[in-house]
């Protein structure tokens, strides 16, 4: 495996990811902002460079996962038991995960510094730069999560297992309130990410979720046409990939 990992508790691993490991591409920020490739006004393209330039020193990357057993109660079709806890995943996620024998519960974060800088700019004299910094931070957090996802996939393949796409509370009709269940199965203060009473992560630029594992699971694209959220990050990612396959 390319990335180094440390087992901090039984079946719980923290993966070392440096900013230099991220295949970061500012074109992705332009596309997320809405501009077609090469059509962004010069002023904003300068802001993207400024925001991207802040990422190496403001990103405090931490990522990790825990492997747990999965079972599917016969009488329940709306979720799965992960590590002895029933998750009401709704139909979309349950359908994609149902053949899993294990699952990786994961967390990835870039830390609080980018969001704090972005917030200051948004409240101050540079709201456009603040917004672009926010998008750059989200892109970085997703890129870290992609690396973690790839790492887990690589490790499982070496054990003869396959993995699914990843799913997060708050998306694909999986209630954000189930973050509390997810975090209850992770080591305390895992990767420095904590939850608010209303199940929101701190630092904000963090991603948590679940990846199915098993000999018979398959990686499938997100089924966005079954979901009502038109501006979802994952739908946008799919759209970007279809417009620009090199990303």
């Amino acid at each position: 495996m390319r990335l180094r990992e440390t087992e901090i508790e039984k079946n719980s691993f923290e993966v070392s990811i440096g900013f230099e490991d991220l295949p970061f591409d500012t074109t992705e920020i332009e596309l997320t902002l809405g501009y077609s490739d090469g059509e962004i006004p010069v002023h904003f393209s300068g802001m993207i460079d400024e925001a991207a330039g802040q990422l190496p020193r403001r990103c405090d990357i931490r990522a990790g996962y825990r492997i747990l057993d999965v079972s599917r109660p016969e009488e329940r079709l709306d979720g799965l038991v992960v590590g002895g806890t029933f998750f009401r995943l709704d139909k979309i996620v349950t359908g994609q995960m149902k053949k899993s024998t294990q699952a990786a519960l994961f967390v990835a974060t870039i830390g609080p510094s980018m969001e704090e800088w972005s917030r200051q700019l948004l409240k101050g004299d540079e709201p456009a730069l603040g917004y672009i910094a926010d998008v750059a931070a989200s892109t970085a957090a997703e890129t870290v999560t992609n690396l973690l996802h790839d790492h887990i996939g690589e490790k499982m393949r070496s054990l003869g297992l396959n993995i699914t796409n990843r799913y997060s509370p708050g998306y694909c009709n999986w209630s954000v309130s189930e973050q509390h269940l997810l975090f209850s199965l992770l080591p305390e203060n895992f990767c420095g990410v904590t939850l608010s009473e209303s199940a929101l992560m701190h630092p904000i630029k963090s991603v948590s979720g679940i990846i199915g594992i098993g000999p018979d699971v398959k990686w499938k694209d997100y089924i966005c046409d079954r979901c009502g959220v038109k501006d979802c990050t994952y739908r946008a990612t799919r759209r970007r990939e279809s417009l620009n396959p090199k990303l």
Binding site: L33, G34, Y35, P41, F44, M47, D125, P127, A128, Y131, I132
Partner: peptide, 14 residues
């Protein structure tokens, strides 16, 4: 009409 995006709107707001 998707002729401009959030950064332009924020510059106008400023």
């Amino acid at each position: 009409r998707n002729e401009v995006f959030v950064p332009e709107l924020l510059m106008s707001a400023k």
